[in-house]
Structures are given as C-alpha cells and as structure tokens.
Amino acid sequence: MSLLLTTKLTKHFGENRAVDGVDFAVREGQVLALIGSNGAGKTSLVNLISGLLRADSGQIQFRGVDVTAESVHGRIRAGIARSFQLVNLFDQLTCLDNVALSIFAREGKARKLFSLARRYRGIWEEAAEVLHRFGLDGKARMLAGGIAQGERKLLDVAVAYALHPRLLFLDEPTSGVSTREKAPIMDTISSIVRSQGITAVIIEHDMDIVFNYSDRIVCMHQGTILAEGTPDEIRRNESVTTTLIGTPAS
C-alpha cells in the first residue's frame, strides 16, 4: 500500500492550472524524485500535500487516512515534513536553536513556559547530533542568518529531518549553490535518508542528481503527471526528454 496517495488533486490560480487532477503515490521506503520544467507545479503539489495550500478539489491520503482537511500541525503530527525551495530558517537564532526547536515541537515541549530551555539536556544533545550528521558541527553557535548558502540549504533539511518524519519533502535541496557543492550536499542528505529508512520526495532539476540518487521518478508538466517510472524507464521516455529539452539543467 502507498504511504501517500493523492486522488485528482487540483489547485488552480485563476486561469493557471498549477496542479490539475494529480494522482500521485509514494511507496514506503522510496526515494522519489519529482521533476519537471519551471512552473510545472512541483512546488504547488508539495504545498498542497504539506498543507501550505488548500486544494480546490481532490483527496490526500496519508497512511490510509484522509488528511485533506487536516491542518499543517495535524499533518506534521501524522509524519509529513518538508524543506523549502527558498531557504526558510530562523535567521536570528543559532543553528543549534533552529534544530532544537523542531525537537522541542516534536516532543510537545515547545509550550513549556516556566522552565529554562537549557534544562532539556537530551534535546540539546540530539540537536547537536543532528548537526553533526549534516556536517554542521562547527556552526552550532553561529546564527543561521550568518552561514554560507550551501550550509543553509543543509540546515533547512536538518530542521525538517529533526521532526522524525515518515515522509520528507525536499524542495530543490541543491538550488542556489554552485555545481561543485551539489554532489556533497546530496551525498549527505541521501546517506541520512537511506540509513534512517525515511521515505523522501526530492524535487530536483539536475538530471545527473536525479538519476544517481532516486529509486523512482515522477515527471510533471503543466500541472499534470506526464510520466513516472524507474530512472531507466524515464531516461528512455521520449515525451520526458522532449519536454525537458530547452529547460535549463538546473
């Protein structure tokens, strides 16, 4: 059975059919790449599933439960987490704080008003451990607003990862960094996701990365799913290659 299943999911912005009757399925344990040219509707689809946008029509099922009407908070509780295409961090907090906040929220401790945050040793240790996994040890005490772009992309993923999601959406985790930095970032993310058995959906433009790191690929075009299959199948699919030709590689 699918971990996530959308049925006829639709979101229009006026005349613009950003997401148009999409049936999208993600199986447990997969690393799935979501590809498509600019404006294909990839981010919009993730926005619908994560609750940032409300669907015009259609259903979203997660672990067999209809979450279409669920709040963002409810979806996070259910196990859906996401990172953002444009880095979205708490810039005036330290990197350690950024990750720790996810853990406080996950543990239901973020509402504690009358006890010092520093008392929760276990949470700080876990936050430090998460930073370590993402190779950000040295940045723990730096403000998130003051680290390099590549590190910010990783921290953005780390903040979502620290929620211990069952399904993790990563919206272009390597956009805005130099080509040289892309592979190391993907290596880090991929090894964490695979070693923890997290199901992940990665939106990516760089086809080398897509073919290298994913088990399955879904290609969107003008709000609909154009094709899906294994990397080999997608590589041979002519409609995919023609629609992606003429779009920038990254």
Binding site: V72, L93, D97, A105, R106, A110, V159
Partner: peptide, 17 residues
Amino acid sequence: KALQAIRDNETRAEFVG
C-alpha cells in the same frame, strides 16, 4: 525560543509544528 522562531520566520515555525 518558539516565540523568537515565530518572529524570525512565521511560515517555518508553523512547519516545525
């Protein structure tokens, strides 16, 4: 901490729950 997170980035704060 959560308040400061909301101050810095409301959307992200919502998406950590």
